[in-house]
Design a protein around this nucleic acid. Sequence first.
DNA 1: ATGGCTACGATCCGTAGA
Length: 255
Amino acid sequence: MRIATWNVNSLRVRMPHLKDWLAANPMDVVALQETKLADPDFPQGEIEALGLHVAFSGQRTYNGVALLSASEPADVVAGIPGFADEQKRVLAATIGGVRVIDVYVPNGQAVGSDKYDYKLRWFAALRDYVSAELARHPRLVVLGDYNVAPEDRDVHDPKAWEGQVLASAPERAALRALLETGLEDCFRRFEQPEKSFSWWDYRMMAFRRNAGLRIDLILASAPLAEACTECRIDKTPRRLERPSDHAPVVALFDI
DNA sequence: ATGGCTACGATCCGTAGA
């Protein structure tokens, strides 16, 4: 099974890149974030014309998540049950016997801000949700834009980012607490090139300088992680004209 | 120098991202 996550930063703008990428990289599951489309505006027909099923939960301008899949998604659930949130950041479905949770973690803006507090509350709710889902689904993957660089090696300049939002200790602790429910970062199961990142700022020629962060993650339950044979970041679409600032991350599972 | 892009929905600038 081939599973990918990609923050497309506007599905409307990135649709040509997505189509080209899927043509070259057929997937069984693709989790998208930042679609930035209200549900009535979602290009369902265009996705289905690619031979894929799709589930989506979006809003105008901000946020928005979608799950593309080769087989039909079952038991689709939007949001974190029991956590009231206007922002469309979570979408779950069962696809090919795997429970998939697509997440777009809040950015947090700045340490100590209201948005940062929201991010930490949101993480706590996600942990409780994932913990309950793990009990029901041995094969669980929780993937998306986490807006946290797990470790210093996931940051191009750890000194400059020390204590900053996306790298602060409370955010990393919240991510660790999520992992401790029983998930593993598929990317770190394998030898990887040094300075592997999944996001680069549009400014300052950050991509050319590889001044990035690894914040897009594929987390898998133990039975699924053990079946993972490869996990890689595909920088190819980031080199295109008018790219998303995020690169897709792919994991392969021998199931 | 705390900026530098990009997308969006509103106007010709503000908000947000990360």
